[in-house]
């Protein structure tokens, strides 16, 4: 009996301590901070206030929220548009090819994401590889503005987050029973009908899963906006980073974070309503 308790203790106590000290308390603390005042030198004045929440509905910040949402949505849609055909084409290949291709999707993902983002600078800048190639082939006359703007950010986000869409979508699409599609074909269903009535319903969970794992980082990855946006295009991530690391307004930064948590929870609730499982989000 005693031994039983010992194992219970060593298997349960660490996770309790962990989830309380490293998850619950930090989040409760920033929730608390979001209702405090700041003294403009970086100090916190412990006085209850709603100022921070009024500040974030100011036009300046609302614009950033809207732009982030737009960037997040465009990135997610682009990822879906790339991943769906990719998964569907691979579905007809042998499992060997499927395995190889999913591994090949993983490889870039295992190298440093910043160095890959840097690779995009070399490609996208005014005298970069893409512009040089386009001009050499006489496709364009003047260099295109591919970075230091929203286009650059969207390319960078789509690139960095694509595996999060491809992998769940592939595993969902690969699981669809081929005989189901064959049967539909025999019954004279068009390709569109097959896609709409069989493939989409059978793989939609992968789309939801991928969308969540793409959209949420896409509004927070400040370093991509920073590097490919030239310091003038801000997303919510930059806003929070600036409040904490330059504007010294932790309460305001906390309020924006709480707002972001709220958005996340709403999205997760929708995901669960649509039948998504939480455990699928953590697996790769």
């Amino acid at each position: 009996m005693k031994k039983n308790n010992l194992f219970k203790a060593i298997s349960i106590i660490p996770v309790i301590i962990y989830s309380i000290t490293l998850i619950l308390l930090p989040l409760l603390y920033i929730f608390f901070l979001s209702f405090q005042k700041n003294d403009s030198y970086g100090g916190i004045i412990y006085e209850l206030t709603l100022t921070n929440y009024f500040t974030i509905i100011d036009l300046t910040y609302l614009k950033v929220f809207l732009k982030s949402a737009l960037i997040g949505i465009i990135t997610t849609v682009l990822c879906i548009l790339i991943s769906y055909p990719f998964a569907l084409i691979l579905k007809n290949k042998s499992s060997k090819v499927q395995n190889l291709c999913t591994k090949l999707v993983m490889v870039p993902f295992l190298t440093n994401s910043l160095i890959r983002t840097y690779g995009w600078i070399v490609l996208l800048r005014k005298n970069g590889v893409i512009n040089a190639t386009l001009q050499a082939l006489h496709i364009t006359n003047a260099p295109l503005n591919l970075m230091y703007n929203n286009i650059g950010i969207i390319i960078g986000m789509t690139y960095t987050l694509l595996p999060f869409m491809i992998l769940p979508l592939c595993s969902a699409v690969f699981k669809i029973d081929k005989s189901l599609i064959e049967a539909a074909k025999d019954l004279g269903a068009s390709r569109m009908q097959i896609f709409k009535n069989i493939i989409v319903p059978e793989s939609i969970s992968g789309v939801f899963n991928g969308s969540l794992m793409v959209f949420i980082p896409a509004i927070g990855y400040f370093f991509i906006a920073d590097i490919l946006g030239g310091g003038k295009e801000m997303i919510i991530g930059n806003l929070i980073k600036n409040q904490f690391l330059t504007a010294r307004n932790w309460p305001l930064g906390s309020a924006i974070s709480i707002f972001l948590i709220l958005i996340t929870f709403i999205l997760v609730k929708i995901y669960q309503k649509l039948g998504g499982k939480m455990d699928d989000l953590g697996g790769m």
Binding site: Y41, G42, G43, F244, L245, T246, A247, R248, W250
Partner: peptide, 12 residues
Amino acid sequence: SSNEELLAKISS
């Protein structure tokens, strides 16, 4: 990269 960043780092 800026004095403000330095101030934030030191005071936090």
